[in-house]
Lab assay of single mutants.
Amino acid sequence: EDAPSSDDLEQFAKQFKQRRIKLGFTQADVGLALGTLYGNVFSQTTICRFEALQLSFKNMCKLKPLLNKWLEETDSSS
């Protein structure tokens, strides 16, 4: 699987934040939901840093598919 470019990540982080707010979730909600869904709880700080593009590139790449999946799950259930 190709690693996303930093442009991709930036684009995704923006879209993710907009969708999250529109769906009415806090950063902490998302962190907990990831724990429920995938067994990895993320702190509010981590989600905040992801949205602000302040995580390392490697961590951004790791989180992106999880957050993407969460969006898909959340979209389909709302």
Rank of each mutant, 00 (worst) to 15 (best):
E1R: 14
E1W: 14
E1A: 08
D2W: 12
D2I: 15
D2Q: 15
A3P: 13
P4K: 10
P4N: 05
S5V: 13
S5E: 14
S6P: 14
S6D: 14
D8I: 03
L9M: 10
L9C: 03
L9S: 01
E10P: 05
E10R: 10
Q11C: 07
Q11I: 14
F12R: 03
F12Y: 02
A13E: 05
A13W: 00
K14Y: 07
K14W: 05
K14S: 04
K14H: 15
Q15D: 12
Q15A: 10
Q15R: 11
Q15F: 09
F16M: 03
K17W: 00
K17N: 00
K17V: 07
Q18N: 07
Q18W: 07
R20K: 00
R20I: 00
R20F: 06
I21Y: 14
I21G: 02
I21V: 06
L23P: 06
L23A: 07
L23V: 02
L23M: 14
G24S: 04
G24Y: 00
F25N: 03
T26S: 10
T26K: 01
T26R: 03
Q27P: 11
Q27K: 07
A28R: 13
A28D: 06
D29S: 07
D29L: 03
D29Y: 02
D29M: 02
V30W: 05
G31T: 10
G31P: 00
L32N: 05
L32F: 15
A33M: 06
A33K: 10
A33L: 12
A33D: 04
L34D: 05
L34N: 02
G35E: 10
G35C: 06
T36D: 14
L37H: 14
L37V: 08
L37Q: 11
Y38E: 06
G39H: 14
G39P: 09
G39T: 08
G39K: 14
N40C: 10
V41Q: 14
V41Y: 10
V41N: 14
V41C: 09
F42Y: 13
S43K: 07
Q44N: 12
T46S: 08
T46M: 13
T46Y: 11
T46V: 10
I47N: 01
C48Q: 13
C48E: 15
R49W: 13
F50L: 02
F50A: 01
E51L: 00
E51H: 00
A52H: 09
A52F: 02
L53A: 13
L53M: 13
L53D: 02
Q54K: 10
Q54C: 04
L55W: 01
L55C: 11
L55R: 04
S56Y: 01
S56P: 14
S56Q: 03
S56R: 04
S56D: 12
F57K: 12
F57W: 09
K58F: 04
N59F: 03
M60W: 01
M60C: 03
C61Y: 09
C61M: 11
C61F: 03
L63I: 11
L63K: 00
L63M: 10
K64Q: 12
K64S: 05
P65M: 06
P65C: 09
L66T: 04
L66N: 00
L67H: 11
N68K: 12
K69H: 07
K69E: 06
L71N: 06
L71F: 01
L71D: 02
E72I: 07
E72Q: 09
E72T: 09
T74L: 08
T74F: 15
T74I: 04
D75T: 07
D75K: 08
D75N: 14
D75L: 08
D75M: 05
S76R: 13
S77K: 14
S77Q: 14
S78R: 11
